[in-house]
Design a protein around this nucleic acid. Structure first.
Lengths: 167, 167
DNA sequence: TTAAACTTTCAATAGTTTTTGAAAGATATT
DNA sequence: AATATCTTTCAAAAACTATTGAAAGTTTAA
């Protein structure tokens, strides 16, 4: 497999993976393209490389910036914007975990609190209460685990950063 | 909020959540319905409760069985099949993790091995190799973590099971 | 063996999501 | 101030995914 074939396969794979995870295929493909590109790319270059329209490119690049996975870069003497992705895959994974927690877990916690207000002594009511309480426990556990993971990671990063500064 | 409203909210919430995770909305709704139902339900009852067609019900119930989240039950003197969901939410979460690992992580490992065959000394080639190698490390880490999680869980279960047997 | 009860399949349809591309909106340059 | 370059928006179209419901298939009972 040569580089060109490898790039295509990587972009396709990342795209498919993304669509299994509620991320649009194109968004994941742009991300993949930027991940393997040594330099930042303009809208034009992304359009060209992935054969997609300007609007589509713009929308998805902005979504990637919302996710904190892609950043704008300005080049001196250039009016256009250039985009580049965070390359450290561990940071990428952490960022995705963080964002999903914010977008999904947090609203869920609120909903469950509401559902726990339901009181009903029928058999169906009992099962409902048990399931909701049990779900609440699992969500709580997941939330704590993710929190721990993020904290550990941030400390690790902070530690390295400090080491670098004081070296 | 009364039980009926609570049930509807639960089913809707689970459905939305599912669709963020690449699971079809209806599949997640059937799952939710079975989770809060104290008794197993027939196709007919699921159709009625969620206002969906027979074909749709059948397809999605089978998909849930594929995921190992729902089981057939036979009642004596009944020809129809009844369905019930695993109620222990921790087991549910574990089962989802296991299945996703099998369906996504495992194929990915193969693809990455292929991508690591690419050799190219250009700058673009270098970045490609670095990204793929880095991704490989993160995937490996994730895989090991999940493996540990599953093993720990299975041991825990096995331990409890043994305790129960020898009590 | 036939009929009844139930499950599965699948082509057509409905619904949802993504993409396009042209127009409008910015911002910089002359 | 007019023009050029680049970015953003959004309605319409295309692509994709889910759902229906009737027909075919299967199993059980008489």
């Amino acid at each position: 497999m040569n580089l060109q074939e490898g790039k295509e396969k990587f972009i396709q794979t990342w795209g498919t993976l993304g669509s299994n995870w509620g991320i649009s295929r194109t968004m994941a493909q742009i991300h993949a393209l930027l991940l393997i590109s040594p330099k930042s790319l303009s809208t034009e270059e992304i359009m060209e490389e992935l054969q997609i329209s300007r609007g589509n490119t713009n929308m998805n690049v902005r979504a990637l910036m919302d996710w904190g996975l892609v950043f704008k870069e300005f080049k001196t003497g250039e009016r256009r914007e250039f985009f580049s992705a965070e390359k450290d895959m561990w940071k990428v994974a952490m960022q995705i975990v963080k964002e999903r927690r914010k977008r999904e877990l947090e609203p869920l916690v609120g909903t469950i609190a509401d559902l726990q207000q339901v009181k009903d002594s029928s058999e169906a009511g009992k099962q409902f209460e048990t399931t909701v309480a049990d779900l609440n426990k699992v969500i709580g556990k997941a939330d704590k685990t993710i929190d721990l993971l993020i904290r550990a990671d941030e400390n690790w990063f902070m530690n390295n950063f400090l080491k670098l500064l004081t070296k």
